[in-house]
Write a protein that binds this DNA or RNA. Sequence first.
DNA 1: GCCCGCCCGTGTAACGATTCAGCGGCGCCC
DNA 2: GGGCGCCGCTGAATCGTTACACGGGCGGGC
Lengths: 340, 340
Amino acid sequence: MAVSVRDVAAAASVSVGTVSNVLNRPDKVASETVARVHAAIAELGFVRNDAARQLRAGKSRSIGMVVLDVGNPFFTDVARGAEDRAAEAGLALLLGNSDEKAEREATYLDLFEEQRVAGVLITPVGEDLTRLDRLRRNGTPTVLVDHQADRDGFASVAVDDVAGGYLAVRHLLDTGRRHIAFVGGPHTLRQVVDRLAGARRAIAEVPGALLELVGTDALTVLQGRSAGATLRERDVTRRPEAVFAANDLLAMGVLQALTMVGDIRVPHDIALIGYDDIAFAQAAVVPLSSIRQPAALIGYTAVDLMLQASDSETDAAGESQKVLFQPELVVRESTSPAST
Amino acid sequence: MAVSVRDVAAAASVSVGTVSNVLNRPDKVASETVARVHAAIAELGFVRNDAARQLRAGKSRSIGMVVLDVGNPFFTDVARGAEDRAAEAGLALLLGNSDEKAEREATYLDLFEEQRVAGVLITPVGEDLTRLDRLRRNGTPTVLVDHQADRDGFASVAVDDVAGGYLAVRHLLDTGRRHIAFVGGPHTLRQVVDRLAGARRAIAEVPGALLELVGTDALTVLQGRSAGATLRERDVTRRPEAVFAANDLLAMGVLQALTMVGDIRVPHDIALIGYDDIAFAQAAVVPLSSIRQPAALIGYTAVDLMLQASDSETDAAGESQKVLFQPELVVRESTSPAST
DNA sequence: GCCCGCCCGTGTAACGATTCAGCGGCGCCC
DNA sequence: GGGCGCCGCTGAATCGTTACACGGGCGGGC
């Protein structure tokens, strides 16, 4: 059933060593022999056994990536960028989805560790990086994606979320809103915490401005919908003038709850800004203002850092790099100035 | 550096065989010994080498999946369903993205084959299944996802796209439209071909109804945007009364081109219906009518079929199963009857 | 004419986990 | 009291690939 190098060797009347050479160093083998071996391979339908190869090499040719939510276009864009860079380096990208659950994240990390992946890219669910620290110490280049590592040792590529949060809320304030609601959660996610911190900073700059928190359990459309519903139910006088949602998925949920289920007008009654600038955001009922992040570039860079780490590791200690991108405000209809 | 069973065995003063038994059949080992081995494992930070394990077993514990477009929420939903079922079976899901390119598809298949995955789930780029046939014959359970296999031998799970196409266009006709444009392509994709066939069937039922084709190179928002642009540029009299887009991504692109760039009203000037009913469709500028498919269920079922095939394979030939779901029309604002 | 190198190839020892035949020792049954 | 079976463990063989040390033949240089 399983065709091995040995079978190929027999069919081509050469030794297994020669077959291996044909596969890996064809220039070392007489071209006539190469042809004969290739013929045998084709005839028998031989396919290299990657497990054996890895066992010998001690390393695999794939890199593992764990994202918070595959359903979020932001992360699929990041993954795409990572895939591109990985392909350039001849590596495959294994994509895992933690769904913001520490348990699932751990399962994937175990899997990747057992597979001896060439590196791990991860957007961690929580702030506890001890598990990752162990991984890194054991020699697996690890890059934090969309997560600034305060502590030394970790390579990371991220976007300045504090700046992004500031941009978003500053924009809401600039367009005349004072009572602003921050929709987001859980607060175990660094993204949420930082964006909120940025928001607070902007609020602090304007006397009389007020920031209110509306928590969610995850950064999903569904959660946004229920957050939006709670706002909708409120008495008109107690509603915020604007909402800053921790990401576009939430924002779209809020938007649906306000405009489609309820009859609250965006931006007239409540302005709305999201985060990530996913492609769907601009096609929303009311085109969504947002904070843009260079998603594909983040992924691309993450793999790049991983490769660097994996090179330098062999030489010296190698300072782990940190890349920080700056976010960008994208203004659309959902935050047009209130036309009073 | 690398800790192996041998090291653990030494540390626990037992043989390697016993360590293996502790790992795989703990009930066969005296509990005192189990504890000692576990202590050694923890102390040394031992992690099983999956390559060695696979080599011995001849099989891996992961299954490979190739989708047409990870950026399409439909496929990420399918992948989610697949992941769930795989997790239930203790298998990991490796997700690859072909981006509708045969070459990338082939790369992933090669990779999966070398990894000796337990099974392959694939939405093929083209109609040429010889590569997959070889894979299946060599003993890898293969399930076609969102693709009905005409020929025998392949397990498949799909949705009746002809019926879906029919539903969509029939609905447009029922709401009074006669000149209908089908936006979609390339015609190498079975989904496109079948949905068009269904559309044609509906058109044939209504005298005077006209179906026009607007081709695209891929099923993406961007492609939809340019298709929409060509319609927009046309003289008013030559514009269709309705558009049936081969999927929601295209539909959203068309929608943007018509309503946001241009000033064509949807559904008043042109009605629009998509396909897949992705979550973002209902939050669009004009909430999108669509054809709903049970995405997660498709993925879940696909893994299920794969597992069945992998069981029956050992016993007998085992008839390869085919599952066909029925699509469902979801009516929203984008196809409201023309208010003449 | 001899020796040195080069070119092609061969055979074998790893890599690390698993499996399986086998082996002491002990209790139980008859 | 002898034998049988079971428990708990050992140690070697095995999976398929790769790297590496080694050898035979041939041609060129001196």
